[in-house]
Write a protein that binds this DNA or RNA. Structure first.
Lengths: 245, 245
DNA sequence: GTCGGGCTAAGGTCAGACCATAGCAAAGCG
DNA sequence: CGCTTTGCTATGGTCTGACCTTAGCCCGAC
């Protein structure tokens, strides 16, 4: 006889059907065995369904699940592909959750700040020489492309992703990706103009120096200042909020 | 002409079909309008599909998406329900992502430590009197149920969730829930025995006192120590896999 | 050589049937 | 009367097969 208080805990059931999980498991195996790498295309649905001895609809349920968490991406007419880039949940995940539970922009920023500053601190402790070289390169590229916001943005993103990799914790990296993706989703990029790229580059350089000198506290603090500045710059940008409800 | 480097960024497409998103939007509206609250049951699939003028399969795709991120839970034969409790992604999300990208247990713990200690710090700054009273209650209950691990565990979870609420940042709370759920998924509960509940209660009391006295640094540090202890206790537990069914 | 049409493959949607489970209600038994 | 058992019904889960829509390619016409 089960205890009665477990309603808050769980019934032991994940909530997803067996077949869906069978698909998930199969894909997981394919990836684990190296038969499927990021960017690769899955077999066609009809074929894969036949191989797994399940109907196409059930297969699609599994594919939908994996798409929802950003592992797969389907392109109509072309095929279904394994997601590239760093691991992350689907960009709409947090957006939808936010819409349902009323997440506020400042909370998103705070979450990003918490995670990314910790990640910077870890990176300062664990970055390899290779990581540091990469960071140096990206900083240099930033300085070199201060007149091209689009190009600058690319190196900005790469800089942050490299730090995530250097932190040695892919989970925190995934969470970071998810949050930033959701932020991009809500407010379109922050580099359009209005931001002083030179100042931004200086901040990145400071973060880089802290990581290179293995100073976690300084790295964390520098990242916090950088993101706080970015937050304020964006908050001061009035032209992008059509609905101030 | 699009730049060529954007393959890493995104194609502007979320990757999910229109109809799926229509369902998501509809449910979002229902929740936003208060017509649907956590714990409520959705209309039957057949009926809802008719109302939305889409086929049942398409509706199910949307429901599957929302289930994947923990917003809905379907129970065979009973119905589909809005998830209760704090917002969180589906427990299997991180588990699957982890299986695909090779997340390690210590990385999970580290992520939890980073987030939850920050959350504790925020809670120390923002907790209301009500929150503090709730925390006091849970701590008391912990001391009162040190001979009943099951009961103890309930108050343990509630304690951490209350801190998350007190932090005023539901996003960090959601991430925390997701990670802890994933940890529970991998290794079954840590309170079975082997853990000194009295010692554990002392740690919780220390965290509580730091929050009550509005000391973010102490709260953060206390939480870090608590989780580090829990991690070591679990790592030293060799008898894992009790039921190899 | 270039442009356009059409063919093929692949994902997206639809319709209807049937299966499996949960929950209740009525019937049957003590 | 109260408990058990049986069976109905509502609801999610799965299957089948058809058709639509899009992407990409090939090939013929100009």
């Amino acid at each position: 006889m089960k205890t009665e208080i477990q309603k808050e805990a769980q019934d032991g059931v994940t909530g997803h059907s067996q077949l869906t999980m069978q698909v998930v498991d199969h894909v997981r195996q394919l990836v684990a065995n190296g038969e499927l790498k990021p960017g690769d295309r899955l077999p066609p649905e009809r074929e894969l369904a036949r191989k797994l001895k399940i109907s196409r609809s059930s297969l699609r349920a599994g594919i939908g699940f994996l798409s929802a968490m950003g592992v797969l991406k389907s392109r109509h007419g072309a095929g279904t592909f394994v997601a590239t880039g760093p691991p992350a949940l689907d960009s709409s995940s947090l957006t939808v959750l936010g819409a349902l539970h009323g997440f506020l922009p400042w909370q998103m920023f705070e979450a990003r700040l918490v995670i990314e500053s910790s990640v910077a601190g870890l990176a300062a402790e664990r970055a390899t020489g290779e990581h540091i070289a990469e960071l140096a390169e990206e900083v240099a590229e930033m300085y070199a492309s201060m007149d091209d916001p689009q190009e600058y943005l690319i190196h900005d993103v790469r800089f942050h992703r490299t730090i995530a990799r250097a932190s040695g914790n892919p989970i925190l990296g995934a969470l970071m990706e998810t949050i930033t993706a959701s932020l991009y989703d809500t407010r379109r990029m922050t580099v359009d103009n209005s931001v002083d790229l030179k100042e931004s580059a200086e901040f990145h350089r400071e973060i880089f120096r802290a990581i290179r000198s293995r100073n976690p506290v300084a790295a964390k603090k520098a990242m916090e200042e950088h993101l706080n500045l970015a937050r304020m710059a964006q908050a001061a940008e009035p032209k992008a909020t059509p609905e101030p409800n």
